[in-house]
Design a protein around this nucleic acid. Structure first.
Lengths: 145, 145
DNA sequence: ATGATTGTATTCACCAGTAAACATTTTCTA
DNA sequence: TAGAAAATGTTTACTGGTGAATACAATCAT
């Protein structure tokens, strides 16, 4: 299971190091692509396959589903580590995510997310949702914090 | 069950010793993360697993639930003792909790909390929450001390 | 009280992970 | 095919994580 929050550099060549704690669970090759809220989603290959399996149920003949399929699937590509444990972010994804200088990498159960550090901070400090909201949700779910 | 209050040093490498009385119940590996009121929550692995189990029903495609998932899961990391019974606090959590020099560790039934000692003192002496007042509330709730 | 036992603080040295600079290879273009 | 640009790999230094050793403090039993 992926957890935790890490900050790392994003070099001029467009590479980020994936924290060693997250690397093992990702495996040799994995999938990276456009996620929600302008961050990048990274899935282990098995999770990706499962995902795609579910999407097969979507119909190419439905306008919305077709749109979703195209956007989602085309946004992803296979990827692997270089010998230093870094990954090279494809140009399209660099632009999409606004990555530069510093990246924040977070684990969210079955995927990893890569954020421009600033975007992540903004998102986290969003007034709209805050930690109190979270505690309320938690108690709704019967998680006694 | 976790109880008690302990003061211990927080060294320059970001480590705290967990009092031996609390260690056994925590088990080999456990989860540490952002808690409420700027302290850190530490849960035994079973308790953590229970939480995550409940979270599986949340959807990545719902804005609020996504936010909640990210904040909660990424705020926690797996953790274990070194051979001296210390734990290493991840950098992000050090910042979050303001830990430095001295830590206060308290047991709260099913979790352990780690506070910056000063924060704990402030919190404890906060006029807003007066122990006598709260005790009365308790008796209203039918909890007889 | 005394000594034995256990737990904690501190220091140091070593190792692993990361950052940054540099070198090499490959690809593209003129 | 030469030169430039991009991609990939290598090296080095550095920081931070980990373990060992030691000294100190607290607790407990006799």
């Amino acid at each position: 299971m992926f957890t935790g929050e890490y900050n790392h550099s994003f070099d001029e060549k467009g590479r980020v190091i994936i924290p060693s704690k997250l690397r093992e669970e990702l495996g040799e090759t994995f999938y990276i692509g456009k996620g929600l809220d302008k961050c990048l989603f990274v899935y282990p290959i098995e999770t990706w396959a499962e995902f795609v399996g579910k999407l097969r149920n979507l119909s190419t003949f439905n306008k919305q589903e077709r749109f979703f399929l195209r956007q989602f699937i085309s946004g992803f590509s296979e990827c692997s580590f270089d010998k230093q444990g870094r990954i090279l972010i494809p140009p399209t994804l660099r632009e999409f995510s606004g990555l530069k200088n510093e990246a924040t990498i977070i684990g969210v159960i079955d995927r990893i997310e890569i954020w421009n550090k600033e975007s992540w901070n903004e998102y986290s400090n969003n007034e709209e949702y805050d930690f109190d909201l979270i505690s309320e949700k938690m108690s709704e779910l019967g998680i006694g914090l």
